[in-house]
Computed example of a mutant assay.
Amino acid sequence: MNTIQEEQFSHEILDEFVRVANKAADAAGRVIKEFFWKPALIQTINKYDEDGLIVEQATNVDRLVEDAIVSIILQNFPNHLIFGEEGGWYLPKDKDAAADFVWVLDPIDGTTSFENGVPLFGTLIALLYKSKPIIGAIDQPILRDRWVGVQGRAAMDHLGVPVRTRSCEQLSRATLYASSLLHFSDQEREAFNRVTDKIKEPIFCAECYNYGLLPSGFIDVIVQSYLGPYDFLAFIPIIEGAGGVVTDCDCEKLHWEASSMYKAPKYYRIIAAGDAQVHQDALIYLKNVKKE
């Protein structure tokens, strides 16, 4: 069944979007390879909240990677808007931060892994049309893995082969991944522990790489919190295009209004699953947890 987005664009236009997303991911990968496993070249940059407290860390490489992606996108689509984790809004002089087409970027998702030489980080690229993700890409340049999703099409791996989530209808047989327990509030951690009491095994690592493993049929459930829009929008076309389900932890559709005038939640809590039944069963323990 065709989606609204698919009906609005020809295959040629969608293919052009994918071509540019792949080209941008290639450019990002070239920059990352120049710095990976070269700690003397990597500089840590602290990010501060409005109270002057350190809330997150990035590196000099994050910004270089984002600049490379932005350059490719603007060369091909100069009228599209871009929102990056490092640089915020990239706006043409005659536009405000609201448009039909918006690219959302996370140049290095998993900066800690990158800094410590663990090749499980990735570059995330999403294209939104009227705030709905129509293109998503996860790229891991060191392992040479890439997943690309197009709304209304089957998700593909780096070889252009369709990927598919695996069947797992019982929570007790599911393998669950999360990046770290430190990313959950106390209430979220309690809810998360209720899920892990019911599953086969919880594993902590891999960050965005998990979201490629899930559509490829290697894992069953992912639960994460404290995410910005650049952390998850690229996953949606990939997971859905592989037969999976991804929502917030109250079973609501994930949504980010692509405008600087929109007051988004401070962070998002998400659950992704390869099997709809496992998704529903896990949600029983995760729903209605108040954010701190």
Rank of each mutant, 00 (worst) to 15 (best):
T112D: 02
A126Q: 15
F101L: 07
A98H: 10
L127H: 09
L120W: 04
P107E: 12
A99W: 08
L143F: 04
F101C: 03
G117Q: 08
A98Y: 08
A97T: 14
L120D: 12
P133T: 07
P92Y: 06
D100C: 08
V148M: 02
I135W: 09
D106T: 10
D100M: 01
D139Q: 00
A99P: 06
I108A: 11
L128P: 01
P141R: 09
A126Y: 01
L127A: 05
L105T: 10
D100S: 11
T111M: 10
T123N: 05
D109T: 04
I142Q: 08
G149Y: 07
L143C: 10
Q140F: 09
A98P: 01
L105F: 15
G149M: 03
S113M: 13
Y129K: 11
L105M: 15
S113C: 09
G149H: 03
Y90D: 06
I108E: 00
L128N: 04
I125Q: 07
Q151T: 12
T123C: 02
F121Y: 15
D94C: 02
W89G: 11
G117M: 14
I138K: 02
Q151G: 03
I108H: 08
V118R: 13
Y129E: 15
L91T: 04
L128I: 01
L143H: 10
D106E: 09
W89A: 11
T111N: 10
L120T: 13
V104G: 04
R144G: 04
G136I: 00
S113Q: 12
K132D: 15
K95I: 09
D106F: 04
Q140L: 11
T111I: 06
L127C: 08
Y129D: 14
F114T: 12
D109R: 03
Y129R: 09
